[in-house]
C-alpha cells in the first residue's frame, strides 16, 4: 500500500469517527485505536495546539457539515422524533452509511433502507416516521430529477393497450399511512415564515402539529410527489390512480397497468372508461407523459 493511501485511510478513520456527547473527538475510538497516538503519529503540533487538537478541528467540521445537510433534508423526521432521538439516529446512520457520493444531495439515499433494518430507532411512532422519511426523500428526488420532452399529439394518438408510457423522471408515487404531507407543509411554512416569536414557541407549535397527526387513526394515503414550474407538489391520489401509476412507472404496458388498477376496485365497470379518460387527460395536463 502506498504511504499516501495509508495516511488518507488513517486520517479519514479519525475524522469520520463519531464525536463524543460533548461534540469533541474521542480519545479512544470504538475499535480500540487511540486517537491521541494516531494524531501524534500523523500531525505536527504547533505552539498553540497539539496534534490531537488539530485533528479534532477536522473531526468536528466533518460531523457538523453532515449534520447540517442531513437536518435540512429531514426536518420533518426531526420534528416527529424530537431532537435527542433524531441526533442519535443521524449519528448512527451516518456512521454506518457514510457518503459514497460526490454530492451531499445523496446523503440520505440509504436512510429508508437502513431504518427498515433498524426499526428500533423510530419507535414508538415507527410508521409515521417512516412515512415522513419516504416523503422527504421523494421530495429531494422530485426537486432536481430530469424532465423529459412531452408526448405530442401524434404520440398520444398511436397509444394502445400494449404501449408502454414513459413518465417524468421526477414523478414519485407513495403509499403512506398518515397524512404526513400536511404535516410537512405546515412545518415548512412555519420554518419559512417571518414569525419573530421565540424558538420555544416554535418548538411548541411543531410538537402540537406532530401530536395532532400522530393522534389521527392510521389512514391509507396515496400520494404523487411531482414538480410543476420547478416547484415540488404533493397530489393525493385514489387507490386506482396509485396502482395505475405504480405499474406504468415500473414499465408495464398500459393494458396490464389498467387491469392492475381495477383489481378489487369500487369503480363500476361502466364508469371505468370515462374515469380513465379523465385521469389520463389530467396527468397529460400535468405533463407527466413523456417521449
Amino acid at each position: 500500500m502506498s504511504d499516501l493511501l495509508e495516511l488518507q485511510r488513517r486520517f479519514a478513520a479519525a475524522v469520520m469517527h463519531p464525536l463524543t456527547k460533548n461534540e469533541t473527538m474521542p480519545r479512544r475510538r470504538r475499535d480500540g485505536v487511540a486517537n491521541t497516538s494516531e494524531a501524534a503519529a500523523l500531525i505536527k503540533p504547533n505552539d498553540r495546539l497539539t496534534g490531537f487538537e488539530r485533528l479534532e478541528i477536522y473531526n468536528r467540521q466533518y460531523w457538523f457539515r453532515l449534520y447540517t445537510s442531513f437536518e435540512e433534508d429531514f426536518s420533518g423526521l426531526r420534528a416527529i422524533m424530537g431532537s435527542t432521538r433524531f441526533d442519535r439516529l443521524m449519528r448512527d446512520f451516518l456512521t454506518e452509511c457514510p457518503s459514497e457520493s460526490f454530492s451531499l444531495r445523496n446523503l440520505g439515499s440509504q436512510l429508508e433502507k437502513w431504518l427498515l433494518a433498524h426499526p428500533a430507532y423510530l419507535e414508538p411512532r415507527s410508521q409515521l416516521a417512516l412515512d415522513m422519511v419516504r416523503l422527504e426523500w421523494a421530495h429531494i428526488e422530485a426537486f432536481d430529477s430530469g424532465e423529459d420532452p412531452l408526448l405530442d399529439a401524434d404520440d398520444l394518438a398511436s397509444i394502445d393497450e400494449n404501449s408502454r408510457l414513459h413518465l417524468q423522471p421526477y414523478l414519485r408515487v407513495l403509499e403512506l399511512h398518515y397524512p404526513v404531507e400536511d404535516l410537512l407543509i405546515e412545518l415548512r411554512n412555519e420554518a419559512g415564515s417571518s414569525d419573530s416569536s421565540s424558538n420555544n414557541a416554535s418548538v411548541a407549535r411543531k410538537t402540537r402539529h406532530v401530536r395532532r397527526v400522530a393522534m389521527l387513526p392510521p389512514e391509507q394515503i396515496f400520494l404523487a410527489v411531482h414538480r410543476h414550474q420547478n416547484s415540488v407538489y404533493y397530489k393525493r391520489l385514489d387507490r386506482e390512480d396509485f396502482r395505475l401509476l405504480q405499474l406504468l412507472l415500473s414499465g408495464a404496458p398500459i393494458g396490464q397497468a389498467i387491469d392492475f388498477a381495477f383489481e378489487d376496485s369500487v369503480i363500476p365497470e361502466d364508469a371505468r372508461g370515462p374515469w380513465l379518460q379523465q385521469i389520463f387527460a389530467s396527468w397529460s395536463t400535468f405533463g407527466w407523459f413523456t417521449q
Binding site: 475524522v15 477536522y58 457539515r65 457518503s99 460526490f102
Partner: peptide
C-alpha cells in the same frame, strides 16, 4: 478514500 467522501477539503 475507498469510495467514501468526507465533503471536506483535507
Amino acid at each position: 478514500v475507498d469510495g467514501r467522501y468526507t465533503h471536506d477539503l483535507l
